[in-house]
Design a protein around this nucleic acid. Structure first.
Lengths: 301, 301
DNA sequence: GCGTTGCGATAACTTTCAGGTATGATTGCG
DNA sequence: CGCAATCATACCTGAAAGTTATCGCAACGC
């Protein structure tokens, strides 16, 4: 039994005529008669009662007609489900992200994507930079929201900038520098610093070296922390101050003050990365949602 | 898209291997690859991701797999529904009947058939003898429960005797003859008779002529009624007595007495009739139910 | 490092069967 | 009765499903 048999039978049963059904199906009448007979042979019962004035449904045919329609309906739905995936209206995407830099963008993007493609499930993967890039390369991830990586790590991938967060100084509210509108590097270099763990965040320490080079003085790291929350807790406690991107204000709440740094080092570039090739429609919609979110004004510094 | 494509895809998706799926499907592997590719082309998306170590489902494939299984399942159910009709486990039969002669057998047979074939709907048709036979011939009726017709009316039909009801005399309880164990024809011929309408029931009147021939006397019909209930009402009122089959006792209740007639005329033969050819399995089961009912002891006279 | 193995894809061919044309059989109708 | 309409039959054609043989690729083992 094939869907063709069902399509043919349903048409004959609805028009109650082989001739008219053949016309509608764009086949010759004998071909249609043959297919119907094959179907009847396979099912072991005549579905149609032929008389010289057309046909009528047999007992078995009357039972089979709604069943056959249901099968065809179900088959059409199955095809539609795949086409919905192709159009990015259904399915699943795996999105990798770096938690702290995307603390502002990720929730808004997820929300926008939910409106754009309500049928697509988003699975989030909180991973390190290397794991994010590896996941993109081997196909486990469809796209990532993260800090702009080194250009040489971007083989076959495309980065799209969404937002830049200027680097700021995080201070406990009681700290004298917190009264200033902005902090100058020469003031900062004398302060005890809290930093990210050197082994986990080498690029953060490279940034610090760059930042303080102009002062000609050595800076002093009094504590290293392996997470944003720990860094902020250290700063809040008065242990020291930290250089952090402006987006950190969302995590900091009111417990820590952020002040612009002068001269400003390179801002933190956050955006999407995905493969240049073979991007699913759903993933493209996610990119679109992210772009729309980025158009909105940034959070006040 | 044909069911073949779905069968092939489901097998590959479950074995995650073209080679093993081809073996199971009893086709060569290239033929299978080709069919899957045709399906993918039609749906507009790859369903399987091929790598040199077997295959895995793509996004679209993961969505399509349960859909395809559902279609195949539904198709199998459709075929099973027809086979259930063939086996007489499902469907509908049209049963014609003569109400009064089958007053005992029909309810019991319906009950037995309900147990034998619960999935079959029985549609009853209360028709005259001629209409019953015509309905059988042109296929509107599958079988009938009725009085044995003339042999010449049985072209292409088969009668099967279920039960014989001896002819009795119906008397009002107050009637003098009601005190007797049985009524002799010579006694009966002097009584005023209530009969069925001559035009509607010629065979009934033929029976009366036969019955009284031996007495050499004329019988006297004082009223004609066109239904069993009217006949019984007339008898109950004392208008006259009637010759009726023993099964009439069920309709009569206690309002009328039935007494055997001596010498007994031919009993009323009640049974099934159906076409010799093309009897559906459900109709055969109905016949079987009727036979089982007939095996039970008859009602006491 | 290099053959070996196991996988799916490709190529060339064969076979099957859906579909086409022509025609026959039946029946209802003017 | 002839005509028109309907489905069945017979026979042919061609698309496509299937077959065998082979390729290319990647993982594995020695």
């Amino acid at each position: 039994m094939e869907l063709r048999h069902l399509r043919y039978f349903v048409t004959v049963a609805e028009l109650l005529s082989f001739t008219r059904a053949a016309t509608r199906l764009r086949v010759a009448q004998p071909a249609l008669s043959r297919q119907i007979r094959d179907l009847e042979d396979e099912l072991g019962a005549p579905l149609l009662v032929r008389n010289s004035r057309g046909v009528r449904l047999s007992e078995a045919g009357a039972v089979f007609l709604p069943e056959a329609k249901a099968v065809l309906q179900r088959a059409a739905e199955a095809a539609q489900a795949v086409r919905a995936v192709v159009r990015g209206e259904r399915g699943e995407i795996h999105v990798g992200y770096a938690p702290t830099p995307t603390v502002e963008l990720l929730p808004c993007t997820l929300h926008a994507f939910q409106n754009l493609a309500p049928g697509v499930r988003v699975t989030l993967h909180d991973l390190s930079t290397e794991e994010l890039l590896r996941g993109l390369h081997d196909g486990r991830l469809d796209l990532c929201l993260m800090v702009r990586p080194e250009p040489k790590a971007l083989r076959g991938l495309r980065f799209e900038l969404l937002r830049e967060y200027p680097m700021c100084v995080a201070l406990s509210p009681a700290h004298p520098l917190a009264k200033l509108k902005r902090v100058v590097v020469e003031q900062l270099v004398r302060e005890p610093l809290v930093a990210y763990t050197r082994s986990d965040y080498p690029e953060y320490h490279a940034m610090l070296v760059d930042l303080f080079r102009s002062t000609g003085q050595n800076y002093r790291v009094v504590a290293e922390q392996d997470s944003a929350s720990a860094l902020l807790a250290s700063v809040e406690s008065g242990r020291g101050v930290a250089v952090v991107p402006a987006c950190m204000s969302i995590l900091a709440g009111g417990r820590v003050r952020l002040r612009p740094l002068h001269p400003a080092p390179d801002a933190l570039a956050v955006g999407t990365i995905c493969r240049v090739q073979k991007l699913s429609a759903a993933a493209q919609k996610f990119l679109q949602a992210a772009r729309e979110v980025a158009k909105e004004p940034a959070l006040p510094t």
